[in-house]
Simulated scan of single mutants.
Amino acid sequence: MFELAHGGTLFLDEIGEIPRETQVELLRVLQEKEIRRVGGSRVIPVDVRIIAATNKDLLQETVEGRFREDLYYRLDVLDLKLPPLRERGDDVKILGLHLFRQLPGGKDPIMQSQFLYLLEQVGPYQWYGNIRELQNFVERANILMRNAGASSVTVSDILRRRAEPAPEPCQETESRDRRAIEAALHNHPGSMADAARSLGCSRQTLWRKMKKYGIQR
Rank of each mutant, 00 (worst) to 15 (best):
I131W: 03
A163E: 15
S156Q: 14
I158A: 07
S156M: 09
L144E: 06
V138F: 03
P124I: 00
T154D: 13
S152C: 05
L97Y: 05
F100P: 00
N130M: 00
V153K: 07
N142H: 11
R162L: 05
I94Q: 13
V155K: 14
E133F: 09
I143Y: 03
N147K: 13
G96V: 04
E139T: 11
G149D: 02
E133H: 01
Y117P: 00
L144V: 02
K93L: 15
Y117L: 14
T154N: 15
V122H: 10
N147I: 03
L116D: 09
G149F: 05
Q121G: 08
N136D: 11
I131R: 06
Q112T: 08
G105E: 02
I131N: 10
Q102L: 14
G123Q: 10
R161Q: 12
G96P: 07
G129M: 11
Y128W: 11
V138S: 02
N136V: 00
L99V: 03
P109M: 11
L97C: 04
N130G: 06
S152D: 14
I110H: 13
V153M: 06
I158H: 08
D157A: 01
R132Q: 05
A148R: 15
G105A: 09
F115R: 04
L95Q: 05
N130C: 11
G105Q: 00
V138W: 02
R101A: 02
I110T: 10
L97S: 06
S152N: 14
E133S: 06
L119S: 02
T154R: 14
R146D: 01
R161T: 15
F100M: 08
P165T: 08
Q121Y: 12
V138M: 01
S156L: 05
F115Y: 08
L134M: 07
P109Q: 13
I94D: 14
P104C: 01
I131L: 12
R161Y: 12
E139F: 04
E133M: 04
L95H: 11
I110A: 14
S156T: 10
P104S: 10
Y128D: 09
E120K: 12
Q112R: 14
Q126S: 11
A166R: 11
R140A: 11
R140S: 09
G105T: 04
L134F: 04
L99E: 12
E139C: 07
I94M: 05
G105P: 04
I94H: 01
L144K: 12
A148T: 13
L119W: 03
K107V: 08
W127M: 06
S113W: 12
R161H: 13
P104L: 10
N142S: 15
F100V: 01
R160S: 13
H98S: 14
D108P: 07
G123H: 12
P104H: 10
E133W: 05
V153C: 12
L119H: 09
Q102S: 12
Y117S: 13
P124D: 07
I110L: 14
M111F: 10
F137E: 08
E133V: 09
A148P: 00
R162M: 13
S113K: 15
Y125I: 08
G106Y: 05
Q135F: 01
L103S: 01
G106H: 08
P109E: 14
Y117G: 07
F137K: 00
A163K: 12
Y117K: 13
L99F: 14
Q121V: 02
F137M: 05
D108E: 13
Q102A: 11
W127Y: 09
V153E: 00
M111V: 09
Q135P: 00
V155L: 13
